[in-house]
């Protein structure tokens, strides 16, 4: 049903394949170092979202389950609300100040995955299901 952009996409396919590991490593780097260097959950998540979008650019298949991505994203949202509530209002942050950095990294990771999934859902929905 969905035809590729042009018949010859092998250049895009090869370049995307070469860039894939670098995108993953760079995205994770931006997320994991977000608390003391530029970047953070949102930016790293946007970089990670390029993974699925690049795949869409190469293959134009719709075997990506948007429904499942929705579920995971909602679960992440619940965790994202629960963790700060437990950590800050449960006064864990005062009792164990050495956990602060781990807490920041964990929150950045959660935000990163949520943003990556959210942007992927937006783009895929737009590319496949958007009706007038």
């Amino acid at each position: 049903m969905i035809e590729p952009v042009s018949k010859d996409t092998s250049i895009v396919a090869v370049i995307t394949g070469v860039l894939y590991p670098f995108i993953i490593v760079f995205g994770l780097y931006v997320i994991l170092n977000g608390h003391n260097t530029p970047g953070g959950g949102f930016q790293g998540g946007a970089i990670l979202a390029v993974l699925f979008i690049g795949r869409y650019l190469v293959f134009h298949t719709d075997d990506f389950s948007i429904h499942r991505a929705h579920l995971v994203e909602k679960a992440l949202l619940v965790v994202l609300i629960l963790v700060p509530v437990l950590f800050i209002f449960g006064s864990l942050s005062r009792r164990y100040p050495q956990w602060n950095e781990a807490y920041l990294i964990f929150m950045n990771l959660l935000i990163g995955f949520k943003v990556a999934l959210g942007l992927t859902i937006v783009v895929f929905r737009y590319a496949f299901f958007e009706d007038r």
């Binding site: 931006v30 930016q43 946007a46 979008i53």
Partner: peptide
């Protein structure tokens, strides 16, 4: 920080 967000969002997505 803003530069990374701008580069990824505006000129990419």
């Amino acid at each position: 920080d803003v530069a990374i967000a701008e580069a990824v969002m505006a000129s990419g997505l």
